[in-house]
Nucleic acid binder design. Structure first.
Lengths: 165, 165
DNA sequence: TCACCAGCTCAACCGCTGTTGAGGTCAAAT
DNA sequence: ATTTGACCTCAACAGCGGTTGAGCTGGTGA
């Protein structure tokens, strides 16, 4: 039943082992993320270590890392053998940093939104939600502003003012 | 210079006030998020309170709330006048919950990934990263597993085992 | 009168991540 | 000899959130 030499796998075998549909494998190959040789009948033969790359793609997918980033990562990885444990550590730490960054962005948005729930001015000029001024969250990680600015320091049109009047 | 009655605005005026390009306004209108009347020359005339809806769309965009959710929210809002402060509070709290949920998902992924950096097995069967078993993170908010499972309780293929061998 | 500007519609296209389907090849099994 | 199954390629389509461009109308000022 289509069994390949120990170190090579047909696409069907890869599909069964990884759960990734053949259409996606074709797609990844077109994108240059994975490679295959061909047998006499022009059919793909994947080196077994390609399973590692595919695993990495699956992980990236779970983490919502775009394939463009995966491609960047793969550019620094050997193509003739599986990545080493050290390779994995580099990659996973890189992706961890991206998760942290995403979390920080969300936390910052949460704080802004919380500050705006009671206000609701939605003024095109004054509302912080509407005006992503990069001064906040721009430099350095960590919380930027834990307290809402004092009343006096912030323009506060009342709710029923029309925006931009 | 194209000035409309106090309570109505041309599309150009809306563009200038909101910073949203006309093409996007057309798009939002096609999606049923905003409405306009037409003047004699079939040109859009926006009721001034439409600016509030547009502000909400801008906020949603910043929060990465999909337009489908905005549409859902707008379905519960009056179409003939601006949303009230109470409306805003309902909406912003809803979106805040969604941010919290997204943050929790990221936190959970961060933890999984952290646990896997030292392991790197990437086993199709055993790796938690590769096998999103909904038992984790599925029920209840908050951290699910703060410590990595004990060596004994978890299958740990060594790095150089081929996945799925 | 003529240019110009604001606006209009409709269709096509962008990047992303794949999926679906049509139509063909090849080897093994019946 | 035929059928089945696995595989191939290529093109088109999906949803999301719009943008771009062509070709039109209508009002205003020089």
């Amino acid at each position: 039943m289509h069994v390949s030499p120990d170190d090579h796998l047909t696409i069907g075998e890869v599909v069964r082992r990884t759960g990734v549909p053949a259409s996606a494998l074709h797609f990844y190959e077109r994108k240059g993320l994975i490679f295959s040789e061909r047998d006499g009948a022009h059919q793909r033969i994947f080196p077994r270590h390609m399973l590692r790359r595919i695993s990495l793609i699956i992980v990236a997918k779970r983490l919502h890392i775009p394939l463009s980033d995966v491609a960047e990562v793969f550019a620094g990885l050997p193509t003739d053998r599986a990545p080493t444990h050290k390779d994995w550590q580099r990659v996973s730490r890189r992706w961890k940093k991206q998760l942290e960054e995403r979390r920080r962005v969300i936390e910052s948005l949460e704080q802004e939104l919380t500050g705006c729930i009671g206000c609701g001015c939605l003024s095109m000029k004054a509302c912080l939600l509407l005006n992503p001024d990069d001064t906040l969250g721009g430099r350095g990680p960590g919380p930027v502003r834990l307290q809402r600015p004092s009343q006096s320091s912030r323009t506060r049109p009342s709710w029923h003012d029309d925006p931009e009047t």
